[in-house]
Design a protein around this nucleic acid. Sequence first.
DNA 1: TTATACAGGACTAAAATGGTACTCAATCGA
DNA 2: TCGATTGAGTACCATTTTAGTCCTGTATAA
Lengths: 155, 155
Amino acid sequence: MLKLSRLTDYAAVIMAQIARHPDYPHAAAELAEAVTLPYPTVSKTLKMLVKANLLVSQRGAQGGYLLARPASDISASDIISAMEGPVAMTECSHADGDCELMATCGVADNWQRVSQAIRTFLDGVTLAHLAQTTPIKLPVHLPIQTVTLAAEASR
Amino acid sequence: MLKLSRLTDYAAVIMAQIARHPDYPHAAAELAEAVTLPYPTVSKTLKMLVKANLLVSQRGAQGGYLLARPASDISASDIISAMEGPVAMTECSHADGDCELMATCGVADNWQRVSQAIRTFLDGVTLAHLAQTTPIKLPVHLPIQTVTLAAEASR
DNA sequence: TTATACAGGACTAAAATGGTACTCAATCGA
DNA sequence: TCGATTGAGTACCATTTTAGTCCTGTATAA
């Protein structure tokens, strides 16, 4: 299903929430209430996002979390990577892939191109896009994304 | 990581193997040897692919598995769906999504567009593409795929 | 009729995931 | 300077998912 983990989902929702009010720090408790998720889970998610340098935190009273950079500079890939590690479809599509089937596999190379195309696409989707509230379902204009596998092959 | 399950990987390898020799039935044992995977696992995978109507089987001596249709008519989506269910990134991106956060979520709609774009892309990648052996890493010409999220919004 | 080969399902083991709790450290403000 | 607030870090457990195996039944060809 190419499914995102639940925590990744949470992360996106939380990041979007912060992105809509970017000018003051958001405490974990406040965010938990805003997105109606249990506090410990939200807290854990936030910590992971800080470790991935997508958020910065401020301790102490009136502290909380802020975006580390503008929402338009944070991609869907960034968020997914923060929660699940690098975006990769197959074992062998990342660096240290020591897949024993390489010899008999025969699809590794092509899967990697597919994976790369999706990664490129997700790089182009930003938090700013995701955070857009669409109370009426207007066409959300995300940038037109052209992925050509042939081009990838020339790297 | 948007990772495919291991069985999906196997499925792709096996399907590609059959696609390269489409004119006679392949027994599970034969395929297991060809891809150097344990027989029971290969067998299980094959059964799932039959149930998804991507392969047809022939029982009895000289029996085995054949593609249910030409490799160019079998997409990456088909294979992934066969092994993992529908291609969907989030809980709410498929029909019966009864996500309780819909109200406070605010990203559901946009995630669904992203998910749809990837699905469309994967629909365009066929088994024929995947099965191409590239002993030397020539540019594999997969079709140029243009996914525009704005277009998806107009459904 | 017999050997071959798939069908279907049950079952177990292992791993990933999700969720929680607890202790420590930093910061603000009275 | 002290105490309340709020995040950091880590360890832990429960649950679910996934992978892998095995056994019994059934169709088919020679």
